[in-house]
Amino acid sequence: MSNGNGAGNGKLRIATAWLGGCSGCHMSFLDLDEFLVDLAGMADLVFGPLTDTKAFPPDVDITLVEGAVTNEDNRELAFALRENTRVVVSFGDCAVTGNVTALRNLLGEPEPMLQRVYVEHPDLDGQLPSEVVPALLPMAEPLHELIPIDAYMPGCPPSAERIKTTITALAQALIDGEPVPKATEWLFPDEARFG
């Protein structure tokens, strides 16, 4: 739990992040209904679309990351949250597989897609967005292609029940000081020679 930088109130520090996704996973998170009250008793929500924090804070216990990595901004946030989080959860199908966000990969590089969306299809003044919005990466990729992930929560969106189960298990492990239930390791035993 928080050691120094946190609020020091003994509560877990939980964050959420919204990368290239539709925010449906966050909506499902809000569907937790009264469990949100229990959760608030056990943890502080320190970052995410539901708070007004600008920079990713240090010393976070659990971060739920929604969305695929699709632009420069996503990438920076992904690195930052990995840097500062104990348990990163790939939250929902876009983060886990790329899902709908990655459908643009079928068109290859981003340019043809941008051309189609912003130039060919608008009725008036089609032009490519260039300023203010972060540049797209060549491919929209699942989160684990970029940073190591500790747990996966598939679903489009994952049901509130599934979110509750996951958070409860992870939080309990952290509170008890147990090893976090990790995503299954699946290399063969004799392949552990990399150490």
Binding site: P58, D59, F79, A80, R82, E83, N84, T85, R86, V87, I147, D150, P179, V180, K182, T184, E185, W186, L187, P189, A192
Partner: peptide, 22 residues
Amino acid sequence: SYNGTAPSVPPRPQAPDPAVTT
């Protein structure tokens, strides 16, 4: 290594032997 630095969060306990867990 993220942001060119070593991870600042202390590493979690070592994962148990995969042969056992799975």
